[in-house]
Amino acid sequence: MNIHLTKFIPVHTDLLLPTLLAHEQLCRFFNASFVIERAENAEEIDGGAGCLRKVTTHRNSFIEEIIKADLTGIQYKIVGKGPLKNHQGDIFFNSTKEGTVIDYHIRGEVDGWLPTFLVKMVIKKDIAQALDKLAIHFHSVS
């Protein structure tokens, strides 16, 4: 299963990145709660590579690990059991004069009895709503 969404966010990456790495505040945008289980690796930016966060959404909990985080984007994966096997999320930042275009990619395999199309529809809807909320947040602060 592959999901790809694109959204323009009216802010530059130097403000966008720390907002997306403030894990425990991501509930402002995502229909989920995030709790840090382990801090980032030494010499990484706050919330960056090595950080483990427990995500609870739709009555499911799972652990995500931040693999990479810098001004070009964020890469993360589910560690252990989760709604998707071999899950990886790649969030790419493409800077423009007016802000940042986010290219959000998710890939993985449905792990369970739910139909793939249904899982894909729910994830895509949740991510699209989160990106919309993120754009509104930065539009209102600019």
Rank of each mutant, 00 (worst) to 15 (best):
I63F: 03
D46F: 13
I9L: 07
E65R: 15
S61D: 06
K85V: 00
P115L: 13
E24Y: 08
F117G: 06
P115I: 10
G50K: 07
R53G: 03
H12Y: 06
R53C: 07
R38M: 08
A69N: 04
F93D: 02
F117A: 14
A32T: 04
A128M: 10
P10N: 09
P115W: 08
I78F: 00
E64V: 02
H87I: 00
C51N: 10
D103E: 14
S140Q: 14
D70S: 06
L131G: 07
L16D: 04
F138K: 07
G108R: 03
E24H: 02
K124T: 15
L21Y: 01
Q25V: 02
L17C: 00
T100Y: 06
S33G: 09
F34A: 04
G47N: 05
H12W: 02
N94M: 11
F92M: 09
I91H: 04
E24W: 09
G112K: 08
G89T: 07
K125C: 06
I63G: 02
R53Q: 10
C51Y: 04
K120D: 08
K133M: 06
D126V: 05
Q75Y: 01
N60S: 11
I66A: 01
T72V: 07
F30E: 11
V141P: 03
H137P: 03
G82V: 01
D90H: 12
E40S: 13
I45V: 14
K68M: 12
F62P: 05
E109C: 01
K124A: 15
F93Q: 09
C27H: 15
T72G: 12
P18D: 02
V11P: 01
T57H: 07
I102M: 06
E44R: 12
D132S: 12
E24D: 08
S33D: 11
L17P: 00
V141A: 10
H105L: 14
F34G: 02
D46Q: 14
K120F: 06
E109R: 08
G73E: 05
H105R: 11
V119E: 03
H58K: 10
I91K: 00
A32I: 05
F29T: 05
G80S: 00
N60P: 02
H58A: 14
E40M: 07
F29I: 05
T57G: 08
V110F: 06
A128R: 11
I102E: 04
L134P: 03
C27F: 15
I106L: 12
E40A: 15
H58R: 11
